[in-house]
Design a protein around this nucleic acid. Sequence first.
DNA 1: AAGTGCTGCAACCGCTCCGGG
DNA 2: ACCCGGAGCGGTTGCAGCACT
Length: 261
Amino acid sequence: MGRQPCCDKLDVKKGPWTADEDKKLVNFILTHGHCCWRSVPKLAGLRRCGKSCRLRWTNYLRPDLKRGLLNEVEEQLVIDLHARLGNRWSKIAASLPGRTDNEIKNHWNTHIKKKLVKMGIDPVTHEPLHKSDTPHKAPNGDHHPSLDALQLELPKDCAAEFSPPTENSSADESRSTSESGNEEDPSMNLIWSEVFLNDLSWNISGLDSRGEYGKLGLFSCEESSFSWLLDNRNIIDDHRNFGFGEFSEIDINSLDMGGKF
DNA sequence: AAGTGCTGCAACCGCTCCGGG
DNA sequence: ACCCGGAGCGGTTGCAGCACT
């Protein structure tokens, strides 16, 4: 007997999400969390596959997402992490707050790959394409000290550039997200303004992140808690694995939505 | 202005991983 | 130890928007 498909193929909608669908999904997750992605579309009144809902949420609707191109530091970090981890985009994404694996993967394939080739570096092996080429030098001879620094001292630099959100940084992050990101997207703006802005439960400063996440790896259906926190915990865990920065639960718990909500 | 090609991103597909029974 | 189902991951595709002719 074959495995049950993840969704009823005949009755699911595919293709781009509409603003209305986004709104429904955000609304649902806002009020219920996602106890089980498979059941989300049904409960949210969406004719979508649960997988599709998860993807839409994690790659586009999550409130903590940065939008827009990766900045230079992020790009360098991606390059260095890729050299270490290969195409493990989710692991790489875990080190870049507000960035998704899909986004990084796309950015790698469309920008960084070309950039590296242009610089004479093999994007797969990270070795010089031609032996005579000096790695990590731009064609014009510009040196990229940040790359060297990252390669030699990643954890430290990583910690410096991507320190865990403090009250200030989280607020800044959130602000920059809204400034450079969501507010540039009219549909997102609409969704968040309608669904979200008036819901004070988005402030999660009191959330016991260790509790439900540690056990289940997803929200409690009873609480308005967020998968993005899980992502941030991954980042924090990675930082711990790299051997720097002990981040207390208070740090995690102090995360809020930058006062936006 | 219209046609064509290119680019970049959102979304899908299929596989693997992992936890529960 | 094994099986099953759900979640997650990485590769790939489709298409909209843009640049160029």
